[in-house]
Design a protein around this nucleic acid. Structure first.
Lengths: 193, 193, 193, 193
DNA sequence: AATGAATGAGGATTCATTCAT
DNA sequence: GATGAATGAATCCTCATTCAT
């Protein structure tokens, strides 16, 4: 007796299981059966909902990016002046919801998927552009002309900190990550009067 | 037609073919047969020389990191004062030998491999540590106490610029990449009198 | 068309096909695909059920030994005095269910497998020990002290007759086989008053 | 500079290495390269001398059977009356030159090969027939009519003792093996006045 | 909706055999 | 004669995907 609304629950469970499985394995070479088992269902059902392994991955990637976006928006909600908004964007990037071992590892893998898969590629570009535009918007009021350059630098640094966390032995340390990027901002803002 | 000295030539051809194949495919899911064919030999011979697909990948990764190291050392050779040495390290990182589409894509894939494979992990760590220590050494004379923090930030930014190049539509632009990182250095050095 | 209870049927079909295939080929160098085809299924399914070729072989070997044990027990069921029980054990060994060309050939191959494979080795030892203990038990009442020696001799002779049947041109002749061993028993029992 | 008479030496080394390799592995699934390496030469040379793996096996099998025949003939040399000749044949069968772990294991494997390979089959038959005829010749003078039956029984028992030694944990014990068969002979000779 | 049995294509790896040197 | 580089066929096993129930 299939419950009403079972589908969204199933889908969410699969997405969660995908991120966890890929994150743990550190690789996209996980089987649909593994993911389905972790989500508590058969591999057949996973295909029924998503059609293919590729689509399961894309859904998981979308979920990661959506969560990321939500964290940033959440952090922005309480900030008013440009500088705190700028710092809020960065803080949102390393919010504990996103900046977790599995998620980071899954994220890195989806980054690789984007080399191969056009849809994944598009998804990533959209989010990169959005981040850059957010950064630039705040920076314009803080560093004027240099806004574009600093936004590029900040974006790259955030990505770099992420990727390095994927390789760290220990659990990712949001504060450490944050410090690196915040110091860069300190520097930029110091210089510009 | 077994020639004398064939082995190093074959090995090099396989390493080159591996980087190209992985780079083009944008994925480690390439077959040994594909690699071998591109290297102009049978898959059996590839196994004869490297023992397994994994070892072929590791050899390719070592080649990439070796090349990277050589570029940095090469750039350092002509630099004398700390600041030019610092900038040389960065310039070496984006030298045209390393900073090429295929290489970047392969590099990203090996980064993922390091999640799974202990040897790959170790290789990457060695290079990261070496880079960081190089940066710190020059920075100590330029920004004193902040050397550690700046080195971390620079390292992350270099990685970030790399990873972003993997996603770019167009051929990677070393100058653009360089500018981003150099500006960061400008900023740091300006502040410290 | 997955039917309920398909698994035991599939497994049995694979075991049967394995004995037949190995028996016909006279060698363990048969492919899983050959076995599966003969069992009317894909090689993938054979792996699904048994996990590996080795496990398929072991299951087939177990089946052979189980059948052998059943034949001996069956023959023993109708015998009451020690001598008829002794002869029943031997008769069971050459019962037509076991003493068939394919089975003998497969059996010989599994004997070889036991050189390499610990599980196969253990299986064979268990059956040898059981046979020896059965023989000894009856012989104790017939030849007293010599029971151990005669049991060893009988066991060896049964094995020897089996192995020779594997090499015979014609279909194995149970009566001929039986005669050889029974004559040996005659002799032993004649001597001991 | 190939030495004169190198060929027979090479061939003998390969035959020896084959028996050892097959004996140790307990299986015919050994590679020509393994055999050649043990014999101190390249796999190419092994092929050069024997043409194929199959022929290498056959040569090794011939060597085993030749050695066996020599042992029996050697044992017969010093025996004069029928009974000691009969016992000499048996003793020759378990002479330490033949009755060694590796040789037994190789022998069992060649027994299996004879299922598949016509030449191997023929070789084995020849030796079996010769053994049987030898036994019968002596037995005729000892047990008269029963000679045929006893010869069959003895032959089977010798084979059985061999095959069991292949499975024993410890090094094969010739004395133990001998006792089993000699007791059988004792019995047969006791009965017949 | 849900299962998991079933398929079959695909890929790493091994190895007998060949052959240029 | 001798090497071992080179080939390519063969095989085990995995896994996405399908489909009867």
């Amino acid at each position: 007796m299939p419950k009403l609304g079972a589908e969204p629950i199933r889908r969410a469970a699969l997405v969660k299981a995908t991120i966890e499985t890929v994150g743990e394995a550190g690789s996209l070479e996980v089987t649909v059966a593994q993911i389905a088992r972790r989500a508590g269902m058969s591999s057949g059902l996973a295909h029924h909902y998503f059609g293919s392994k590729e689509q399961i991955f894309l859904a998981a990637m979308r979920a990661i990016l959506t969560l990321y976006g939500a964290e940033v928006r959440g952090a922005l909600a309480t900030a008013s002046d440009p500088e705190s908004r700028l710092r809020a964007i960065v803080a949102g990037s390393f919010a504990p919801g996103s900046f977790r071992r599995e998620t980071i590892s899954a994220w890195l893998n989806f980054y690789v998927l984007a080399q191969t898969n056009a849809q994944a590629h598009r998804l990533l570009r959209v989010y990169q552009r959005r981040l850059r535009s957010n950064l630039r918007h705040e920076l314009r009021q803080l560093v004027g002309d240099r806004a574009g350059a600093v936004a590029r630098g900040l974006g790259a640094m955030i990505d770099g900190v992420y990727i390095r966390a994927a390789l760290a032995e220990d659990a990712p340390d949001p504060q450490y990550a944050l410090d690196i990027v915040m110091e860069y901002i300190d520097r930029e803002l110091e210089v510009t009067p």
